[in-house]
Amino acid sequence: MMDERDLPTREKVLWWIAGVVVIVYALFPVVWIVALSFKTPSDLGSKRFWPTSWVWENYDNILAGDAQELFLSALRNSIGISLIATFISVVLATFAAYAIARLDFPGKRVILTTALAVAIFPVISIVTPLFNLWRNIGLYDTWPGLIIPYLSLTLPISIWTLSAFFRQIPWELEQAAQVDGATTWQAFRKVIVPLAAPGVFTTAIISFFIAWNDFVYGISLTSTERARPVPAALAFFTGASQFEDPAGSIAAAAVIVTIPVVVLVLLFQRRIVSGLTQGAVKG
């Protein structure tokens, strides 16, 4: 990497402009949905970017008003279902990735290839058979009815990301522990788990994003507020009255579900990037 102090001013300015363009590109639609969420219903049609006056009306509507039940139950469903799916897949993936990174056994490649195949699986192809099956066995419109298919989204990426992380752990420490008399299991628990925790944590965040983002399962396998997650619920929003444009309420709900994600990204940006890329590109 060349030293940037040597750059001529003109080039420096160009890089600054390029950087600012990238930031505007990344944030523009987000700022727009925030602006939209603060508009009054009559202001929605103003065809302007910013609200003429900033009001909390839309937030009132979804947190305390008519849309409250719809939104808050969806929020509860989304958080609960995504957390449980993330937890299950991270636990399963941690064991699998440890075995893949550390142990010599036939079938390693099969497991990684399966993870890859599952990751590229068209989600809607799973929905069709599950829709019928879930109705028959009573899992339709329930939390487990979403948690189980969510594993098809979260488990493969967890296995990949974690395998990549685990390959970088200094395993000599584990051997040292084993020489000192620890069993494989003890070495795993006492030495490797603390070293692996950051990778596991990052994997959990990425996995949570993916579950949180799901729409296909959410819209297809639920029918009421019992299990419907936020992305699917957004499609069912109505305005304060039946004839009112729900844009403001949807925007407000969108902002609320986006905030935690953006905060996570801000806090763990470096780790998420390395987790995302290590899984796919040789690190």
Binding site: A26, P231, A254, V257, V261, V265
Partner: peptide, 22 residues
């Protein structure tokens, strides 16, 4: 830059769809 670029990735696709739609 790296943080900003992660924002579109992390946003729910449905939210992004609504933002562009509106």
């Amino acid at each position: 830059l790296r943080t900003a670029i992660l924002v579109p990735y992390a946003i729910i696709t449905v939210v992004s769809a609504f933002a562009w739609f509106y």
